[in-house]
Amino acid sequence: MMKLNLNKTLRAVFFASLLTVLFFTAATTVFAQDDMPTDDEVNAIAKQLYCPVCENTPLDVCPTEACRQWRELIRLQLSEGKTEEEIKQYFVDNYGARVLAEPPRTGLNWLVYILPPMFILAGAFILFRSFQAWTKPKAVETASSPSEEAGEASDKDPYIARLEEELKNRK
């Protein structure tokens, strides 16, 4: 009788422990999924920002303590319900526009957007003109016969014309 009671108690303790573990696991999982932004959500914003301390390293892959703090700040602001634009604006206000991966389209920053396409267009134009210059003389060469060429040359160059005339007279 005593043994039976002990078994019952042990079984009750086992089920109570199991239920407790299941409850807290489920509660933790729900908290992690619903309230805290994931690393992917944080990094989606972090990759659009650069920390001024470590130049040329996007915030999502920067290993320094300063960048870790910034990522946690993004996580905090996301959990407070701030939008991507609001978070980026917060960073610009606090650390300056140079933290943005894509410079704002104002003032001298416009050069960054205008110059590269301009140089590409100018390069294409120069190449086009160069090809034209290379192909035109060849077209003239292939179209004209040697005699015509000589004739043309004599027309153009008075010395050659005179030389040819003297050669003819000797004959």
């Binding site: 001024p52 610009v92 206000d93 606090n94 650390y95 300056g96 140079r98």
Partner: peptide
Amino acid sequence: GPDMGTRISQ
């Protein structure tokens, strides 16, 4: 205080 916008450090 914070160096807002890194203006003072610049």
